[in-house]
Design a protein around this nucleic acid. Structure first.
Length: 353
DNA sequence: AAATCGGGGTT
DNA sequence: AACCCAGATTT
């Protein structure tokens, strides 16, 4: 075993953060936590994890739940395909794996939402399989450690590091080894302002030796994200609000929001309001009053959401565009619907006073 | 290989 | 405002 591996494990023993899924690490808890942790910081996940485990304590409970209930507990966490995949995987585990989370890397890979990172994390942490889990932290830590002046998002880099680590991951505590590398990336070998003087890997770190820690990994310019104006219509009719449900295959799939859509070039806000509401829900409206605007940034575009109060003039509810279905919902029932953060903010800002 | 898919924390 | 986060899936 290389000397740095032992130094890393010793460091982890004294610096590991407390996390609820580390208290009683059942395979189910490890799986749920790893799904939530994809592209999401530890501190953000903790309250979601606690609520999720309390509501869905085991695989069978999750498999039997309605997707709406699963999405509701995911509300605000983002990347909602993770929740839909998690739900489908639970049903696959019940139907094809006797209700037990698979213990082999290759089997885990066959489940929805589980890729190379998550399969390795579950296999190592829950089942002591010596498979390296390579996430963004590990890519940064190891690219620095080995002095790799590369774009860590480029093809083949993860495979290279996975291969490198597979020859060095200890058979005795592979889960701790994987978690230690990630913990080190989060606490010490940070993207900016790395704390090299605290690092157990410093004696062998190529980037530290070359005074190049701030230059590795290579930073690559990102494409600028476009901006679009989006309409949202708050339609109150006979004491109920009009909501539309987004198609599963679309962004924010399975979530409920106020009808609306993108404004086309040259289109007035009022015209766009009427058109997008009709196309999304089948209900025709006239905007009555502008409630306000919300700005929001997604991964690959930014929006300004123009929120209008509108009055129904005709039409009947139906799905359309990005939307699969449509309902009139009582005000008190709005809280139970899983909504994207923008729609939830509309409720909290303009429907509560 | 590149694009898609959220929301929030950090700098 | 840019970058990043215990990535996976689709195009």
């Amino acid at each position: 075993m290389p000397r740095w591996v032992l130094a890393l494990l010793r460091w982890f023993n004294t610096h590991r953060r407390a996390m609820p899924w580390r208290d009683a690490p059942s395979p189910y808890a490890v799986w749920i936590s790893e799904m939530m942790l994809q592209q999401t910081q530890v501190e953000t996940v903790i309250p979601y994890f606690d609520r999720f485990i309390a509501r869905f304590p085991d695989v069978a409970t999750l498999a039997e739940a309605d997707q709406d209930a699963v999405l509701k507990l995911w509300e605000g966490l983002g990347y909602y395909s993770r929740a839909r995949s998690l739900h489908r995987a639970a049903q696959a585990i019940v139907g094809q794996h006797k209700g037990l989370v698979p213990d082999r890397y290759e089997t885990l890979l066959t489940l929805p939402g589980i890729g190379p990172y998550t399969a390795a994390a579950i296999a190592s942490i829950a089942f002591d399989q010596a498979t390296p889990s390579v996430d963004g932290n590990v890519l940064r830590v190891m690219s620095r450690f080995r002095g790799m002046r590369v774009d860590i998002k480029a093809a083949g880099v993860a495979d290279d590091i996975r291969s490198y680590l597979s020859k060095r991951i200890p058979r005795s505590s592979p889960g701790d080894f994987n978690q230690a590398l990630m913990e080190l990336g989060a606490l010490v070998c940070r993207p900016k302002n790395a704390l090299c003087e605290q690092c157990p890997l410093r004696p062998s770190c190529k980037a530290a030796q070359q005074h190049a820690v701030s230059e590795i990994p290579l930073k690559v310019a990102r494409a600028k994200v476009p901006h679009v104006d989006v309409l949202a219509l708050v339609v109150l009719h006979r004491g109920r609000y009009l909501l539309v449900k987004r198609k599963e295959t679309k962004m924010l799939g399975g979530l409920w929001e106020f009808p609306g859509g993108k404004r086309e070039p040259g289109e007035t806000l009022a015209a766009a309001a009427a058109r997008t509401c009709r196309e999304a829900s089948g209900v025709t409206v006239v905007p009555v009053k502008k409630l306000g605007i919300l700005n929001h940034a997604y991964s690959h575009f930014k929006i300004t959401l123009h929120v209008f109060e509108a009055a129904r003039t005709g039409g009947r509810i139906r799905g359309g565009g990005d939307y699969s279905s449509c309902e009139w919902v009582q005000p008190l029932a709005l809280a139970q619907r899983a909504m994207p953060i923008t729609a939830r903010r509309v409720v909290n800002r303009w429907l509560r006073s």
